[in-house]
Design a protein around this nucleic acid. Structure first.
Length: 679
DNA sequence: AGCACGCCGACT
DNA sequence: GTCGGCGTGCTC
């Protein structure tokens, strides 16, 4: 019987079910069921139903036994595009995880109303096409010109030639041309030059009749990028796909992305999983941002998603940023990515000021060197001055005045915090006000603030600059834009607003404190935060890097961020830390973990770290391996995960015996997890 | 997961 | 002889 068998991926996280199952297509669904559609199928015994995706429809099954029938077809809309399925399979294989986990991120659940509206519109559209079609998206750009800021490079040509680039962004802000349909207030027209660059690259791909996928870390970046895109392409060709959208919006966007018209897909890490058949460009902005690491299984970093998708669809691939991640640097060094820097070169005016022992020469509050103070004071006369700080809130910590221990909530032991100087301290976890507080260590009843948060910095600067407006922007209450008026803008790293024309001066405070965090990537992260803030300064405006010296300071001052990434990568290579190599953590009961490790080839087995005890009674080992071995390591460990999930024995010697099965997470494998290197 | 199949001890 | 305990294995 022709096309009577559907091959289905069932929607379950169970590793042993992560393959295709054959089902008979019943008479009533014959000819309707197609690849990419959601179906309901019985699994194991009739009556138990699971959702799944039809991957292909074939004439006959290779399966020995008899086939169950598809129970139901949820919709005739093929929501899983073939290229997304291929990508999901490859991502799961690389990360030792299940394809259905990836699909859960990639395919939003069905929205009947959205779907009906879309089907109706498509119907109307195809009718219209037969007669006349006066509403075709007209590219706003008559001709795609050269990409601004890269004089000697043919970036447009590179996109058409599907090149792979590590693109250094020009660290300046620019004003977008007045756009008639974007009724935006004036401030919104100022964006980072990087956004314009990416928008121009996307316009090249569109003009070529292909799609572009642009991935940004967060919403604030997305706003800038969309604004920049609106200036160079038809607004109808811009499609937002991000995790902040409601499910109907995501579903609507998915359906549009499955259409034929060329689009620019813009969004956070999830946009890299969007359907796009004719893909001409993938661009990732600021790939070092931790928001690109996916917190859900199988934990694939957006950078790796982009790389894998490149392998499958061969679009142009661009990693753009101010600072360079060690990961991209690695790809440059092996010759896989081509470096492109702005031409003419622009070097921001970064002035490192190290606090050398004595406080002499420093302003009253001792946090700001007098040279920076003087310049900031002068600059604020002409417009906004940016002050970057490490911590939000008033003070990062409150402590007992006697013993110095952290002041904790008497109810839940959470850390206490203060909203402003006068506020009663409250618990950061349960919110309880700390009235009648006493120290749990020494019974003392007084506490003091330790350190300085954005709010306190704002208070201090407000007193130091009487009459100047002070604006605070942090992660919980971010401000996207400020106006061009004189103001002190205090922002936590990553939450800096954009100022028209750029800030007249930038002060990067708390550098020492940012560097004090113990993590493999501190230096890289700090440099990225500083570089991104530096890029918000006006042309040649002073940027003071306070309290930081050495290689980091000179990297920023000379704007030689790639060289720093190279040195950092050399260190990691020496220590055999990622991203010079890859890692995978293997967690579970001791014997399961040991068995899994024993499956690995000797040269990899001998390089594993641990296993060591974790706090929940399991053990964890860290497997280290070269990129070339990744495929084999993933296959081996995945095999063990399946084995561990399949053979289920009682916990030996468990007194509670009876129905108690062994502890649920038998063996967990997580690739490219940097968390164990956090300290 | 969740359920059927199957291989050993107390029962009619 | 066979009812049902739970350990084992499979899911088209």
């Amino acid at each position: 019987m022709p096309l009577a068998v559907a091959r289905v991926l069932v929607d379950t996280p169970l590793p042993q079910l992560d393959r295709l199952f054959d089902y008979a297509v019943p008479e009533r669904l014959r000819g309707l069921v197609g690849p990419g559609m959601r179906v309901k199928v019985p699994l194991r015994s009739a009556g138990r139903m699971t959702d799944g995706f039809v991957i292909e429809v074939v004439d006959a099954s290779e399966h020995e036994g008899s086939l169950s029938e598809i129970e139901d077809l949820l919709s005739t809309v093929p929501v899983l595009a073939p290229e997304v399925w291929r990508l999901a399979r490859a991502l799961a294989d690389r990360a030792g995880g299940s394809a259905s986990d990836v699909l859960r991120l990639a395919v939003p659940t069905r929205q009947v109303r959205v779907e009906k509206a879309w089907l109706a519109a498509r119907e109307a559209d195809s009718d219209g096409e037969a007669t006349a079609h006066g509403d075709a998206p007209s590219p706003r750009h008559a001709a795609v010109g050269p990409v601004a800021g890269y004089r000697s490079h043919d970036l447009a040509g590179a996109v058409r030639a599907r090149a792979r680039l590590a693109l250094d962004a020009l660290p300046l802000v620019v004003e977008l041309p007045d756009s008639p349909d974007a009724a935006a207030e004036a401030e919104r027209r100022w964006v980072g030059q990087w956004a314009v660059t990416l928008a121009e690259l996307a316009a090249v791909a569109l003009a070529d009749g292909t799609n572009a996928i642009l991935a940004v870390p967060d919403y604030r970046d997305q706003e800038q990028l969309v604004a920049a895109l609106e200036a160079v392409v038809d607004a109808r060709q811009i499609l937002r796909l991000d995790s902040r959208q409601s499910n109907p919006d995501r579903y609507r966007a998915l359906l549009r992305a499955r259409g034929d018209e060329p689009l620019v897909l813009v969004g956070n890490r999830s946009v890299l999983l969007a359907p796009s058949t004719r893909l001409g460009l993938i661009a990732v902005w600021d790939d070092g941002d931790p928001l690109f690491s996916e917190p859900l299984s199988p934990y694939v970093h957006a950078r790796d998603t982009a790389l894998l998708r490149y392998e499958q669809q061969k679009p142009a691939l661009v990693f753009a940023g101010h600072a360079r991640s060690t990961d991209v640097q690695r790809l440059v060094e092996i010759g896989w990515l081509t470096e492109v820097s702005p031409d003419p070169r622009y070097q921001p005016r970064v002035i490192p000021t190290t606090q050398q022992g004595s406080r002499e020469g420093f302003a009253a509050n001792a946090r700001i060197p007098s040279s920076a103070w003087t310049e900031a004071k002068a600059a604020v006369e002409f417009g906004p001055v940016l002050v970057q700080v490490a911590h939000p809130g008033y003070a990062p910590r409150l402590a007992c005045t006697e013993c110095g221990d952290t002041a904790r909530c008497l109810r839940c032991s959470g850390p206490l915090q203060k909203k402003n100087a006068a506020a009663t301290p409250a618990c950061a976890w349960c919110g309880a006000l700390a009235v009648g507080w006493h120290c749990t260590t020494c019974e003392n009843t007084m506490m003091r603030t330790v350190g300085t948060g954005a709010g306190r910095t704002a208070d201090e600067l407000g007193r130091a600059f009487p009459g100047v407006k002070v604006v605070v922007s942090d992660g919980s209450r971010p401000i996207l834009h400020v106006d061009g008026e004189s103001a002190i803008v205090v922002a936590t790293r990553g939450a800096e607003p954009i100022a028209p024309g750029g800030y007249r001066a930038v002060l990067l405070l708390d550098g020492e404190r940012m560097l004090a965090r113990e993590s493999l990537r501190v230096a890289e992260d700090c440099l990225r935060w500083w570089a991104n803030a530096t890029a918000l300064a006006a042309h040649r405006a002073p940027v003071f890097l306070v309290g930081v010296g050495g290689a980091l300071a000179s990297a920023l001052a000379t704007w030689n961020l790639a060289r720093f990434a190279g040195a950092e990568l050399a260190d990691r290579r020496h220590l055999r830390f990622p991203p010079a190599i890859r890692v995978a953590t293997v967690t579970g009961k001791t014997d399961t973990v040991v068995k899994a490790l024993d499956d690995l080839p000797d040269e990899i087995r001998s390089e594993t770290l641990g296993p060591v005890d974790t706090d929940d009674g399991t053990v964890r080992a860290i497997v280290r391996f070269d990129y070339a071995a990744g495929h084999d390591v993933a296959a081996t460990l995945r095999g063990r995960v399946i084995r561990a999930a399949t053979d289920r024995r009682r916990i030996p010697g468990d007194p509670r015996g009876s129905n108690q099965r062994r502890a649920v997470p038998t063996l967990k494998v997580r690739f490219d997890d940097v968390e164990p290197f956090a300290d």
